[in-house]
Design a protein around this nucleic acid. Structure first.
Lengths: 251, 251
DNA sequence: CGTCATCTTGAGGAGTGTCAATAACTGTGG
DNA sequence: CCACAGTTATTGACACTCCTCAAGATGACG
């Protein structure tokens, strides 16, 4: 168990805990691996555990009435998967979660979390902060959906990816398939494809999975200003520097 | 100050506090009135206070680049106005808030809240629960925006109003102007108007501000099932019974 | 080289936003 | 009680965006 102490230290949620507190958590949890494509849980399943991503990315989605699946979010290392369900004491999962690539997850029983997270130094505050950040993101998504074109939405998402992964500001590779991104943006694959073409006029050229920003001036005029900066709240600001540490340890 | 003890007791956020705790809160806060149409705060203003609605309704909105304003939410008695900003320690308001009708608000300095809410029995948990509920609502909104027609959206919102205000299940009057509701639903006034006409085919007839449900079977097949039940989390389930108490005392 | 998954491109149509004109409602003052 | 102005709501016509279906292209991998 000792070897996972550094894993926990690298997760924002547990970073401020004492050695003893994290040891207590580790003795009541497991680190599981979830290989690419595997369902972690499905809509309607009983909520048994609270999960935090140590490595990899998870797609959170719901099944639409017409048989498709719509992606609500794509979470990465450091993110809590179901903090909202923990807090609102939901008995059943409202969404489904699937591994986008090979993942490591910290798995803590819900009952244990409910009894103990209030006693740990900053965990309640961190959970609050994480929820507030998620809410803020959701509100921005709503704003984007209702006021911006598909192309603007796509451009904003590319910006967000750049910030989230701390990518090279000029060029990077899409970390997910285009279909997944389109689904995340609540649009059809075809519309996303056409949108990427349209971005050429606004300083972003996309060939294959390679995204490159050619003219930041044009781009900045086209996207929403909220997406060029990190909208994480204070407690999560250090996350970028931590990502590498997290990935290094979470195996 | 004594007379406001019952006002606080009626607000879910403070209902579980002791007499002494609420006395402490009252001695560090004010109850202000905000008449219809008045701006409580604007986007960009410094965040100085945490607000809870005792009576009336507040429109939370943002200004769109093209000069209009888009409504994010309409909050009513018992709701916290800016719990997210409190928790994420934002220095400036991300949205604006305006009174839809004459309101009473509990106004607590942010600094005091930050220092003390962790010490009160259940307040941190209540704030968490409230945020989780808001997040869940936002996610449902996204789902609705991207998968349902304008008419379905409108029908769902009518259902939600019925639940939120605990209205007669068969007939009620819209509590806001149609323009405001349309804005809340992220659609044009005209589209909302046409949607209401279309609802006749699905068991809902709207004439003027009067909404009546004629055929629940048809309606239930048309709307999303999440909107017919309260999606508040446990801590807020008692709210319906409390609303009258709140209104009675919050003057 | 074939197979499978993913992505692109084209054509057509449903749904919603926009503009403009008209109608209904609200409150005020004569 | 009625006339008036101001707000709010409805209705029509039109354009545009995005979804859908269908076909073809590209790429990864055995």
């Amino acid at each position: 168990m000792r070897k996972f102490q550094s894993t926990l230290k690298a997760l924002p949620l547990f970073a401020d805990n004492t050695f003893e507190e994290n040891a207590l958590i580790l003795s009541n949890s497991r680190i599981i691996s979830c290989h690419s494509g595997k369902l972690l849980f499905s809509h309607g399943d009983k909520v048994t555990h609270f999960y935090v991503i140590c490595r990899g990315a998870m797609q959170i989605f719901r099944d639409t009435p017409d048989g498709y699946e719509a992606t609500c979010n794509i979470l990465i290392s450091g993110d809590s998967v179901n903090a909202d369900e923990l807090v609102s004491c939901q008995a059943k999962h409202a969404m489904s979660a699937r591994a986008v690539n090979d993942c490591s997850l910290l798995e803590i029983p819900i009952s244990w979390m409910l009894e103990n997270f209030n006693n740990m130094n900053n965990m309640a505050a961190k959970l609050l902060a994480g929820l507030a950040a998620q809410l803020s993101n959701a509100q921005v998504d709503i704003e984007h959906l209702s006021t911006m074109s598909a192309a603007q939405n796509a451009a904003c998402y590319l910006q967000k990816l750049r910030v989230q992964y701390n990518f090279d500001p000029l060029e990077f590779e899409l970390p997910y398939t285009k279909s997944l991104i389109a689904s995340r943006l609540q649009m059809g694959r075809e519309t996303f494809s056409r949108s990427l073409l349209a971005l050429k006029d606004h300083g972003i050229s996309v060939t294959g999975a390679r995204v490159s920003f050619k003219d930041m001036h044009k781009t900045r005029r086209f996207v929403c200003d909220k997406c060029s900066v990190s909208n994480q709240c204070k407690a999560y600001q250090d996350l970028h520097q931590d990502r590498e540490k997290i990935s290094a340890h979470g195996t």
